[in-house]
Design a binder for these strands. Sequence first.
DNA 1: GGATCTCATGTTTTT
DNA 2: CATGAGATCC
Length: 765
Amino acid sequence: MKTLLDGLNEAQRTAVMAPLGPVLILAGPGSGKTRVLTTRVAYLMQEMNVDPWHILAVTFTNKAAKEMRHRVESLLGDQPRGLTMGTFHATCVRILRRETDNLQYYDRDFVIFDSSDQLQVVKQALKVLNLDDKKFPPNKMLNGISNAKNELITPAMYAASNYISEITRRVYSEYQLLLQSNNAMDFDDLLMNAVLLFEERPDILGKYQKRYEHILVDEFQDTNTTQYTLIKMLAARHENLFVVGDSDQSIYKWRGADFRNIQRFREQYPEAQLILLEQNYRSTQIILDAAKAVIRPNLNRVHKELFTVRQGGVPIVVREAYNEHEEAETILDSVESLMVEGYSGGDVAIMYRTNAQSRVLEETFLRAGMPYRLVGATAFYRRREVKDIIAYLRLVHNPADAVSFNRILNVPPRGIGAKTRQGLLDWAGNQYWQPAGALIRMATDPEVQHPFSGRALNALSRFGNMLSAWINLRDKVAVSDLLDVILEQTSYRDYLDDGTTEGEDRWENVMEFRGAAGEEADISLSAFLEQVALVSEADNLEETPNATTLLTLHAAKGLEFPIVFLTGLEDGLLPHSRSLDDGEELAEERRLLYVGITRAKDRVYLSHAFRRTFYGDSSVSVPSRFLNDIPQELTEGGSPSIRRRQSKKRISSWPGSSSGRQESSRRSTSANQYSEWSRPSSERSSGKPSAKSRDLDGDTLDETVRRPPGKPQFRSGLQVRHSRFGEGTVIESKLTGNDEEVTVAFPSSGIKRLAASFAGLEIIE
DNA sequence: GGATCTCATGTTTTT
DNA sequence: CATGAGATCC
């Protein structure tokens, strides 16, 4: 008892010990909401003698679920048996799998379709309905479908008010039929079908209501209507509903999340206890004040008076860079200064609104040899080769999965072209067979009548036999063994091996995937596929020591870092251009910035660029309107106009540049003019070896910048030496801006494209 | 049937 | 600019 509540503040204690019934916790950033949630779970068990079997705790991400599990375990000493703790989706899948006998259109082996599978199904639906996918873009349709499902609107309920929504209704309807015939559900279905099942079958609902006496929900502001309804239904019997949220951190409106569910909760449970967690344990007062100033203009907020014991703090640094390259360089310089101060690169996070912005940052860090980790780059499970392999496994598991079937029918190429494919689909359709089933019958049963002959027949039979053999093998061997057989028989490696490093990388990804299958020795194919569908690899993102984290603002939610750089604070980027004409969306952009600022413990750097390149061409940007909301006494870097003037001054000092030859700006600026920005300046001026060594020495630098265009230093065939890659041969060299881009083949590291001014290439005879 | 090219497209993306 | 899907060519 004492240990459970130890170290909790007044409000947190009140929350943990709140009497049964509905409880709403409004938790500011850094106020220890996860702690409250986990302690409450432990409290229920330890102090209220609740059997863990009767507790359901839901989160949005696997990561959050894992964290909670971990913390409950450390509070109690061991893992409570029977406790249900997981994401909304995982919880629903568990229920649906258990109840497959009661599902009308699905059997036990149903699979989960991800967004690319969904897109294929939408395209197929459009085809079936004879609709033009130019006029009705599949992803727009999919969006409409997803929105409907988030709102718990079935095709039958879908009210069409205009032409486009009528089309959406039809596509939605067809789409659902196709999913059912594939024995597949999309992510939204997992939630919606659970609710629909409960609506149709009060007896089944009753079973779960009885079981889940206590329900706890994390990030409640992110629930959509379907999730809200699910929770409400499950809690209807006991009404022990403990929800934690912060509407100021609602940043997933575009995914159907509706923070007004918090308001709805208050209305529907008027007796609910309301507890505010206002003490922030993370940030300095200055950071918190800046965050509050940013969020204040949003309307209809439940006022929270956030405070922290970390009085004072370092002022927020606001600065303007000439362009995105300089922005990145400046950040890099600051990170290096911070390292001199004793911070580690791993204490730093750099956040941005759009993924595209990560590129320049990456390049800059890469060139400097500074370690970084990129959160949420192209998801592993979404890579083509990995998806192929998953499609094989999914098809073996669920031969009704026509999407996977179509994906791999001729991958690797096995001589089944478009004509043969269509023939197969038509023939199978006429027999009311699924394509994979038809193929297997054709290949294994000589009695079956079919329209194929010659080469087509040969190719189809070969594949049909393989598929049939895999299905027979399915329950007899481990997933990894099954995978090996498939890879072997399809010669998948040869298919990927096109002699490029990319091909090798792809094969490595396949092997990594195989490794994941091998790790779980006894996992069934079904469980493995489910895990692959519902668990993103971001959940097991390993901690790279000392690496600076690069991530989107969305990805940053729930994390904290001593140092946070927020980049691209420009109108059109943050707030994003697509949100400028909509008050609600603008408010969400504001919350996004709020989330970003509140991730920081010690220091925040806000930067914007004078020019930024979008889709190839560069244009002048306006500093984010949100910057005006941060009181100047909290910042360092002067008013916007002062920053702009300084920025202009620096630009005019550039050698022969008025229009921003960005390419050359990086080095020429990093070491000198900007030192005033790097904090603290004393340490900056003392110099730092690593910063120096990265730079070329002064002479070379000047030469690079001043060299008139049109005279490359390098030409094809030249032998060069690079400090890291060793000796190599120049393949080509071309001038870009004021720099020279040299493509070099290194026997040891492959082909690299290098900027001459940074690479420090040495010409050897 | 497979490779190559062109053209449209581009916010965020917990599951 | 950079990517990917679809059309077109061989």
